[in-house]
Write a protein that binds this DNA or RNA. Structure first.
Length: 282
DNA sequence: GGAGTTGTTTAGGA
DNA sequence: TTCCTAAACAACTC
C-alpha cells in the first residue's frame, strides 16, 4: 500500500545508485501492463550508459533523473503494490521484476506483482512539464486553508473519505492515511464535504498536514507506525480505538475499505426537515 | 473456489 | 455541464 511516506521511503532505496552509469537496462516483459504508456525499447536505449543523478518524490509519483544534463527522466508510480529494490549487479529478474537497471555495484529493480504500477519516460522540457503540472504537496505552503475550503465547497456532495483520496487536492494520501486523518480530526468518513463547518474544515486541514508530515518522520523500516496511531489497529479484526478504547467500525465507503471510531468520529447528524418538508411528510 | 484487497481511469448515471 | 458512483484493471492471500 504505497502512500506518501512509503513512496518517499521507497524512492531513497535507489539513491545508492546515484553517480553511477547504467550499464544495461533490462526490460523483463516488454508487453507488461506497466509499460502501457511508453515504448520500453526507447527507454532502454535512452538510459543505457547514462548516470543516475537525482531522484525526487511528489505525492505518489517519483522521478529519477539520468544523464549529464539530468534531462532523461524515468517516472514511476507504484500503483497498489509496486516496489523498488536493490539487488546484486548480476541479479537475474524474477517473475514480477519488470525493469532492472544494472550498475557496476548493484542492480536497481522495479517489481509489481499486480501490474497497477506505471513506468513513464520523459526527456528535456517534457519532463519538467510533467513534474511541474503535478498538484502541490499537502505539506507545501500552497496547501492553504483557503484552498481546502474552496475545494470542500465545490465537492459538497462528496463524502470525506473519497474526498481525501482525490489526488488533485491531496496528492499522496491513500486509503489508510485518509482514515488516519479523519480519525484525528474527529470527522466521520461519511460526512458530506458541504456539511463541514469552518472549525471542522480547519481541523481537516491541520490533520492532513500533520499526518503527512509525521508519517514520513515516524514510519519504521518495516512500514509500521506507533501504537498511538490508528494505523496499526485498523487492520486487525475487531481492534480498539487507541484514543478511547471503543471498538472500531469498518465499512466500504466510496468503494474503499474504511475504518473509524464511532465514539471519536460521531456519525453526521441528520438534517432536520424544513417546516415545508415537515408539513408535506405529515 | 470465491471474496477481499489496493490506486487510478473510465464509463455511465444523476 | 458538472459532479458523483461504480466497475474494471491483475494477481495474490485468506
Amino acid at each position: 500500500m504505497p502512500e506518501l511516506a512509503e513512496v518517499e521511503h521507497t524512492r531513497r532505496k535507489w539513491d545508492v545508485g546515484i553517480g553511477q552509469p547504467v550499464r544495461e537496462v533490462v526490460i523483463h516483459k516488454p508487453a507488461a501492463r506497466v509499460f502501457r504508456k511508453i515504448d520500453p525499447a526507447h527507454l532502454q536505449s535512452r538510459l543505457k550508459n547514462q548516470p543516475l543523478v537525482s531522484s525526487e518524490a511528489k505525492g505518489k509519483q517519483m522521478i529519477f533523473r539520468f544523464g549529464k544534463k539530468a534531462d532523461r527522466c524515468l517516472g514511476i508510480h507504484l500503483g497498489m503494490e509496486g516496489l523498488l529494490r536493490v539487488e546484486p549487479p548480476d541479479f537475474a529478474p524474477a517473475k514480477h521484476d519488470y525493469l532492472l537497471l544494472r550498475q557496476a555495484a548493484q542492480s536497481l529493480v522495479f517489481s509489481d506483482h499486480r501490474l497497477f504500477g506505471l513506468i513513464l519516460y520523459f526527456e528535456g522540457a517534457a519532463a519538467d512539464r510533467w513534474w511541474d503540472a503535478l498538484p502541490p504537496a499537502v505539506t507545501s505552503d500552497e496547501f492553504t486553508l483557503a484552498a481546502l475550503t474552496t475545494f470542500v465547497q465545490r465537492r459538497k456532495g462528496t463524502a470525506l473519505k473519497p474526498l481525501l483520496l482525490m489526488q488533485e487536492r491531496f496528492p499522496g494520501v491513500g486509503n489508510w492515511m485518509a482514515d488516519e486523518i479523519l480519525w484525528r480530526a474527529g470527522l466521520h468518513p461519511e460526512t458530506r464535504a458541504g456539511k463541514l463547518a469552518p472549525p471542522a474544515t480547519e481541523r481537516l486541514w491541520k490533520m492532513t498536514r500533520e499526518v503527512c508530515e509525521r508519517a514520513i518522520e515516524e514510519m519504521a523500516e518495516d512500514w509500521s507506525y506507533p501504537d498511538t496511531w490508528l494505523f496499526p489497529h485498523r487492520w486487525e479484526d475487531g481492534g480498539a480505538c487507541p484514543q478511547c478504547g471503543s471498538d472500531l467500525e469498518r465499512k466500504i465507503i466510496g468503494g474503499r475499505r474504511t475504518c473509524w471510531c464511532p465514539h471519536c468520529q460521531p456519525a453526521p447528524t441528520r438534517l432536520t426537515p424544513s417546516p415545508k418538508n415537515a408539513r408535506q411528510a405529515a
